[in-house]
Amino acid sequence: MLGNSIFGNTMSMANKSLDYLWKKMEVVQNNLANVDTPGYKKKDISFEEVFDKRLRAASQTKSNTQMRQAISGADYFVYTPYDSSARVDENNVHADVEEADMARTSLHYQYLLQTVTADIKRYQTAIKGQ
């Protein structure tokens, strides 16, 4: 695969991370949209821990194939964490917490996208010989 020979695993990892961050923003937006829905329980998303474990295990094998499989096989999952609600309507979404999470996730997404764009521009410059 051409992408892996030029970029190593960088683009695959960035792609997985961007997919996760996009999904995280969707989950947070859904939580915010339901902040006043009686009985709604906030959702969360898990990815980093599983991804980190897979990468660490693959890096110990020193196999590029294992690393690619670890990256492609890592996935996120949406779940409802146990969180009792102190609100009368049994909704456990806190808008201020969700908004802070959205801001953090958006900044992380933008940073990662800028990093990928800069990497691609460097390769373009090298290819053009400028």
Results as ranks from 00 to 15, higher is better:
88 V>W: 07
100 A>Y: 04
34 N>Q: 11
49 E>D: 15
115 T>I: 03
18 L>Y: 01
74 A>E: 05
37 T>P: 03
98 E>C: 08
87 R>H: 11
14 A>H: 08
54 R>D: 13
115 T>W: 08
50 V>R: 09
77 F>N: 07
52 D>I: 01
17 S>A: 15
68 R>P: 00
27 V>Y: 04
90 E>P: 03
78 V>K: 09
4 N>V: 12
111 Y>F: 13
16 K>R: 15
55 L>W: 09
10 T>E: 13
67 M>W: 03
21 L>N: 03
8 G>I: 01
21 L>M: 14
60 Q>M: 14
103 A>C: 03
62 K>G: 11
72 S>W: 00
121 K>Q: 13
93 V>I: 05
81 P>K: 12
113 L>A: 15
76 Y>I: 02
12 S>F: 12
33 A>Q: 08
90 E>D: 06
34 N>R: 13
129 G>L: 00
10 T>C: 03
39 G>H: 04
91 N>G: 12
74 A>Y: 05
126 A>L: 14
117 T>W: 02
69 Q>H: 09
2 L>I: 06
84 S>L: 15
42 K>Y: 02
69 Q>C: 06
116 V>K: 10
119 D>P: 00
107 L>T: 10
52 D>W: 04
116 V>W: 02
26 E>A: 01
9 N>L: 04
3 G>H: 00
127 I>A: 11
46 S>P: 00
33 A>I: 05
30 N>K: 12
111 Y>N: 15
84 S>F: 15
83 D>Y: 11
70 A>V: 01
109 Y>G: 03
70 A>P: 00
94 H>A: 09
112 L>T: 05
25 M>G: 06
59 S>H: 08
83 D>C: 09
75 D>V: 05
122 R>E: 08
42 K>A: 10
128 K>P: 02
15 N>C: 01
114 Q>G: 13
89 D>G: 07
53 K>N: 13
13 M>C: 05
47 F>R: 10
